[in-house]
């Protein structure tokens, strides 16, 4: 392990192009531009070469950070970003209604491995700080869910955090699952972002039943305000949103001349990306991830 905090800071500083900094010397030691020794770092020496040879540097830093959300409240967020410098887009990941859980954090890390800076704010930070994700989700549900205005403030804080990173290219996209799918769409209505992925979000269209205790309102009458392209991924066996509701949303997007791309899967219902639930559908999830990668590849490349 690195023994000096200063050395560690030098390694993780986002401005550093660590790919160039680190290399393997002829004796197999990992050395840096400033002569640092990374004795504990796991680099393989390529046996086919002689002398110095760099190997692909793919380190990702994943950590809990504090960001400034709605009402200037400091809220918890989980962030992951590649450590190889460069200039890259950012992805705001919006967790599903079961909360800021292990699976959502894995998704955040997935985006960092794909080369994006990524962050997921804990939308239940205020009502359940430090709680287990399922307990926090139960508390949020009992309180009527997350109000849209507060969500938009928290999402705005996460977007600012992404754009403030030295490696940011200024472009930010968002992806949300379940309730987060609706919130991703809402983000594209409210904030300056370059793309939104709605994964089976309910009540983008459709009206919640009377007496409904959660604070969600449909967004159908606001489609004209959409500020970014939308990728929608839906299961044809889902009832929230139902195929009819997806049709309705698609018509609205067409009517208003919005840039969108929908993919709809047979033999898949709600939450088909959830690897640890019976709803997981391998074919839909694999195809869906490919579309997400292509969409962000297009929307988040280059400079803003």
């Amino acid at each position: 392990m690195l023994s000096q905090q200063g050395e560690l800071a030098a390694l993780i500083a986002p401005r550093r192009d660590v790919r160039r900094v680190l290399s393997i010397a002829s004796d197999g030691r990992v050395v840096g531009r400033e002569g640092m020794k990374g004795e504990g770092l796991r680099f393989r020496r390529d046996p086919t070469t002689k002398g110095e040879k760099s190997v692909r540097y793919d380190a990702v830093l994943a950590e809990t950070v504090g960001i400034q959300g709605a009402g200037n409240d400091e809220i918890e967020a989980y962030a992951a970003r590649p450590m190889d410098g460069g200039s890259r887009g950012g992805v705001l990941v919006i967790h599903h209604m079961p909360g800021y859980d292990r699976e959502t954090k894995e998704i955040v890390r997935r985006f960092a491995v794909w080369g994006y800076n990524a962050i997921c704010p804990n939308l239940y930070s205020r009502e359940a700080p430090g709680a287990e994700p399922d307990d926090a989700a139960a508390t949020a549900r009992a309180n009527g869910g997350v109000p849209d205005e507060r969500f938009v403030g928290d999402a705005g804080g996460a977007v600012r955090w992404l754009r403030a990173l030295p490696t940011s290219n200024g472009k930010v996209g968002t992806i949300g699952f379940c309730s987060g799918g609706r919130q991703a769409f809402l983000t594209a209505l409210e904030l300056d972002i370059q793309g939104a992925v709605d994964c089976y979000g309910a009540f983008v269209v459709g009206t919640p039943p009377e007496g409904f205790p959660l604070q969600v309102q449909p967004l159908a009458d606001r489609v004209a305000e959409l500020r970014a392209p939308v990728l929608g991924l839906f299961g044809n066996e889902d009832s929230h949103p139902s195929p009819d509701q997806v049709d309705e949303l698609e018509k609205l997007l067409q009517t208003h001349g919005k840039d969108y791309e929908f993919h709809r899967y047979d033999d898949a219902g709600h939450a088909f990306f959830s690897v640890d639930r019976p709803s997981y559908r391998v074919a839909a999830a694999l195809d869906g991830w490919q579309h997400v990668q292509a969409f962000f590849g297009t929307q988040l490349s280059g400079k803003a």
């Binding site: 599903h96 079961p98 549900r141 009992a142 309730s179 089976y200 979000g201 309910a202 205790p213 929230h240």
Partner: peptide, 9 residues
């Protein structure tokens, strides 16, 4: 988790 169907007592 998005049926949202919730009763509270």
């Amino acid at each position: 988790m998005c049926t949202y169907s919730t009763e509270k007592i």
